[in-house]
């Protein structure tokens, strides 16, 4: 494979995978929170449309990921989609109004750096 593999299409696929993963996690969290006080938590979660939307996104993401890997080596695609470890905490703060202490923000940033490095190593 050549070294200039990040075509516009590949970048769009990577962006979509990150978007799908971050959205899915937000949807799962919203479903979990809204089912939290139910007597039967599992049943309540299963009846939340947000969960099913998340599962559909999951399936679409798997297909997008496989298509992506047919165009781009894993060693490039993996660190980039791992940017969701930065995206999820940021999206949680923006959309779910979650507040981390400064120490926890530093922790989340360290995790994102660590996961990116492991992606670079081409696990």
């Amino acid at each position: 494979m050549s070294s200039h593999v990040l075509t516009a299409e590949a970048l769009r696929l990577i962006a979509f995978c990150i978007f799908a993963e971050v959205s899915r996690e937000l949807l799962f969290k919203v479903a979990a929170d809204s089912a939290q006080d139910s007597d039967n938590y599992a049943l309540a979660v299963a009846l939340k449309p947000a969960v099913w939307l998340g599962i559909v996104l999951w399936a679409v993401e798997v297909v997008a990921w496989v298509v992506l890997l047919q165009k781009v080596p894993l060693s490039i695609a993996f660190p980039l989609v791992n940017l969701n470890y930065a995206g999820v905490p940021i999206a949680s703060a923006l959309f779910l109004k979650e507040r981390l202490r400064p120490k926890q923000m530093l922790g989340a940033a360290l995790v994102a750096v660590g996961v990116f490095c492991i992606g670079l190593a081409g696990i």
Partner: peptide, 11 residues
């Protein structure tokens, strides 16, 4: 997810 913040749990 029912008990822990998404930002903490995901990291």
């Amino acid at each position: 997810l029912a008990e822990i913040k998404l930002s903490s749990a995901f990291s």
